Simulated assay, not measured.
Amino acid sequence: MTQPAEHAGGRARTPIDRIGATVLNELVQSIVTGEFGPGDLLPPESVISVQFGVSRTVIRETMKRLQEKGMITVAQGRGTHVNPSTSWNVLDPSVLSAMISNDSTLGVLDDLSVVRSALEAAMAAAAARTVDDDARARLREDLDAMAECVDDSAAFREADLQFHRSVMALSDNALAENIARVLIKHAVGSDRFTGVDPAHAFELTLAEHEKILAAISSGDAEAARIAMSEHILGSWTRRRLPSKKRS
């Protein structure tokens, strides 16, 4: 457990990190949901300080973090303005989680699936170009693990993710892998992303993974790219929940 930091005089205090976490998360939520829209001026530090019952030091630190996330611009003498979503660091965990949790139209998850499919398709193609016997055995082992737990949804989903992680690792593209892992990590915890699996969904998923494995194993980069892209987009389409239309 994190111990309280101490003032120079020796008196213990709670770290700003812990005090400001709730404030930061609530402000991120307020911006993502549009309570404060692009171009809006945030209230002064003194007002936010009173609103949350924390010191202005905490609010100042929170503003720095929001600025690091690309959500606000602080201009001396002109106040703090909210930035449009195109300026946000959408790979920041708190920003991405807030976007997904407030994604009533499923537009964010639609876009996430498109980006993920492009990244993982490129990584599957790269894996096919350098495939060897060890890589084939690794992917076959992952696929067999999926087949063994087809009646256990939680175990099957984890085995599914492990197959994708293996393809990513075999691609030797650390940047694409890191981005894809962030997207997956913050999507899989959402009920909207999980959706509702249709009948025989896991059998369909197994067949799609078999196709990916066959393409990679044969060294056919283009077939691997297509198979991975079709699997990710098709899987999302199958389980996607009905949603509100985008405005």
Rank of each mutant, 00 (worst) to 15 (best):
A214S: 09
R239S: 01
S247Y: 03
N102R: 10
M71H: 04
P198G: 04
D103Q: 01
V108Y: 06
K244L: 05
I179H: 08
A224T: 01
T205D: 09
I19Q: 14
D191K: 04
V108H: 12
G53P: 15
R165D: 15
E148N: 12
A221N: 08
A118V: 09
S49R: 01
G195Q: 00
A215I: 01
A199T: 08
I184F: 09
A224G: 02
D133E: 13
E45N: 14
T73K: 10
D92M: 03
T80L: 02
V188N: 02
L139G: 04
L161W: 12
K69D: 08
L183C: 01
D172S: 12
M1C: 05
S30Y: 07
Q67P: 04
A8K: 14
A199G: 13
R56C: 05
H200T: 03
D220E: 05
A122Y: 04
I226L: 08
A5S: 11
V150K: 13
R60I: 04
E35H: 10
M63R: 12
A122R: 10
D132T: 12
G219R: 08
G37A: 12
V114N: 07
H164N: 15
V90T: 13
H7E: 15
M1S: 13
V54A: 03
D134A: 08
S49G: 03
K244M: 04
R18M: 14
A221W: 07
A137V: 02
S87C: 12
T105E: 14
A12N: 13
H81K: 10
G10I: 14
